[in-house]
Design a protein around this nucleic acid. Structure first.
Lengths: 210, 210
DNA sequence: TCCGAAACTGAGCGAGCGCTTAGCGCGCCC
DNA sequence: GGGCGCGCTAAGCGCTCGCTCAGTTTCGGA
């Protein structure tokens, strides 16, 4: 866990690694703007304005607007991958590990909906090279979840006819939380995480023999 | 079912209701462009060019670029709602009706991925009035799925602790197909529909007493 | 045969875009 | 305390955007 600061919106700030301060403020402003309006509908003037700077200041810290998106996307994917790796590597049965992975992955998508939206839905706005790099990270995300499901099938805890398809569905379900989750809605990230962990265990036919 | 024509991309054409011919060609071109690049990154020159017309021709048939998106979104949502209503109203057990609803809804999202992408992911690009109208249609979509699940719970066929949450998750799972489905990938829309129907029946704990 | 409405084009307007450049102010080190 | 460089701003360049409009083509009906 990083040192948890909060924005006015109440979201966690995993951007402590971005320095100097002005570069981080610009990046946080860009995350908010991209999440609200989308990458293409966001102007560099808007980003700079949110960060309390002039439009030209952006180009001291970032070569282009796309570089901002690339940085956000890479850091976000690394964080998501880190969450899944932590859950996948812990002690416990496949059932416990899968429930942990899903609930923490969902909590990240719901609680950090602003970031998650940009990370999950603006992939196509990246150029070819940057997109290829991010797709590599996504493959690692997929592999992490598939490994847990395969463990469960091997141990007999899970009943899954189509492992790749079910892996895809589980990830898809979690990722789409970023699209519909509403901070002002009736559900907390923790509630959604618990609900989704239960639903996913049903999907894999979990019946732990303990 | 509409009279099924196909584009070069192999997708069904549910746009027969759009007349005259030039207006339909522009709308189909807009669907393709919006799906590829997103609404904000698509130019009116690109849409007109794909339809084989000059940029000015667009404004004879549509007042603004946004009106194009609005028309696409409304027609698409009505089609999606129609699919779910048909499945929900048919004869059969809740299990059969839910499986039918999910598999046909998923087939629509996978087979008509181009349209579904625009319909599901460009809602925020609409103005306030148009968005409110579309949100109304989405509520009807949600109600349709929830009704089937509630039937299953009432009859004892399903075991669902959180009906609204599970409804949300089922719809979310289906909708996200439009994001990841790849026409050149290993799965046909029919395969995904069958896989997802099975996964959803597991999610609701289906155990039909027949 | 001619007319008028409808469909469409070529040219271009005002606005806003991403990004650049010249120069200013201020903290830091000698 | 003086100079230097980093971080920043004001101004604006070249371009493309959504959209408009005057004019051309097309074609059914009188």
């Amino acid at each position: 866990m990083s040192t948890a600061e909060e924005t006015a919106g109440g979201e966690l700030q995993p951007w402590a690694e971005v320095t100097p301060d002005a570069a981080r403020r610009l990046l946080v402003a860009a995350v908010e703007a991209f999440a609200e309006r989308g990458y293409h509908a966001t102007t560099t003037r808007d980003i700079a304005g949110r960060a309390g700077m002039s439009p030209a200041a952006l180009y001291i810290h970032y070569k282009t607007k796309e570089e901002l998106l690339h940085r956000i996307s890479r850091i976000g994917h690394e964080k998501a991958l880190d969450i899944l790796r932590t859950a996948g590597a812990r002690e416990g049965s496949p059932t416990e590990r899968l429930a942990d992975a899903v609930s923490s992955f969902v909590r990240w998508h719901a609680g950090g909906r602003t970031t998650a939206r940009v990370v999950q839905y603006e992939l196509d706005s990246l150029g070819a090279d940057a997109r290829a790099e991010i797709i590599g990270l996504r493959r690692q995300v997929d592999a992490e979840v598939r490994a847990i499901i395969e463990d469960g099938v091997a141990s007999g805890d899970f009943d899954v006819p189509d492992v790749p398809g079910t892996t895809l569905a589980v990830l898809s379900l979690c990722i789409d939380v970023a699209r519909w989750f509403n901070v002002d809605g009736p559900r907390t990230p923790e509630m959604v995480g618990a609900l989704y962990a239960d639903l996913v265990l049903r999907m894999v036919g979990s019946h732990p023999h303990a």
